[in-house]
Design a protein around this nucleic acid. Structure first.
Lengths: 130, 130
DNA sequence: AGGCATCTACGACGTCCGTCGTTGACAGTT
DNA sequence: AACTGTCAACGACGGACGTCGTAGATGCCT
């Protein structure tokens, strides 16, 4: 009965994104990847501490068989995205999925390419729902 | 030169939702509305303090002409929703609007009614984009 | 005028979060 | 064996957040 891990904080989510992209990684790898991607510059021990906390919370799993530990995301990216979006949907959109979509469409980043993708998703969803 | 107010925290957002629903309100009205809606039970002075902080941050505007102050949301609901969704989209979805929509659709709450609404939005958006 | 209710302001406190320094263990190098 | 570098662990700290108690001002009622 593993209790559901709490939602990741901002910094924790940034780390999870690295783990999802790279797969199981050491602290050093995560730190360097953040160094490249991120604007901010976090220290090595900061990343270590975060990962220790995340292990405690159940957000990541740690392989300690070797001296240099290897961390892996405990939940899939999709699952985490779903949880986070659900939370925001409840808190800010009154639980309305269509409101969320409306706002998503109103953004400049909803390019033509993305619109086609969205329409495809909608068709699939409808077909499956039948 | 009003700087853009920072994003509201969880508790602040709950208050903003009340203000959007009720319009300009006193601390008491906000407190009572929260008492009805919310599961949690926050004290009067807590709500007052929150609203004072929010005034400081520029999230709300305060009318002090009367002894009992009246608070009003500084930004529209849509604008705030957009900002919050943008933030989450960047942090968790790599800035992809279609990923957000995909997740939104995968939720049980995307009812048939909502699906129709979403499709309508999509049509309008496409027509307008032409 | 006295007393009660209401309201704002202020300060305090516990918690979480992100940050980092230091320490001690371990490993490879010369 | 001594040195150098890497690693995990731990403690500390400043800031934000949400919480509330208390004080002081103001208004109302009798």
């Amino acid at each position: 009965m593993t209790p559901v891990p709490p939602q990741p904080t901002r910094a924790e989510l940034a780390i999870l994104r690295v783990l999802w992209q790279l797969g199981p990684s050491t602290v050093r790898r995560v730190h360097e990847s953040l160094r490249d991607t991120q604007d901010k510059d976090t220290g090595y021990t900061t990343v270590l501490k975060l990962l220790q906390n995340m292990t405690e919370k159940g957000l990541v799993q740690r392989d300690e068989s070797e001296r240099t530990h290897v961390y892996e995301a405990a939940l899939s990216q999709k699952r985490t995205q779903r949880d986070l979006l659900r939370d925001l949907m409840d808190r800010a959109f009154g639980g309305s999925a269509s409101s969320v979509v409306a706002q998503a469409l109103s953004m400049k980043r909803a390019s033509a390419e993305e619109l086609a993708e969205i329409r495809k998703l909608l068709d699939e969803h409808e077909r499956r729902g039948k």
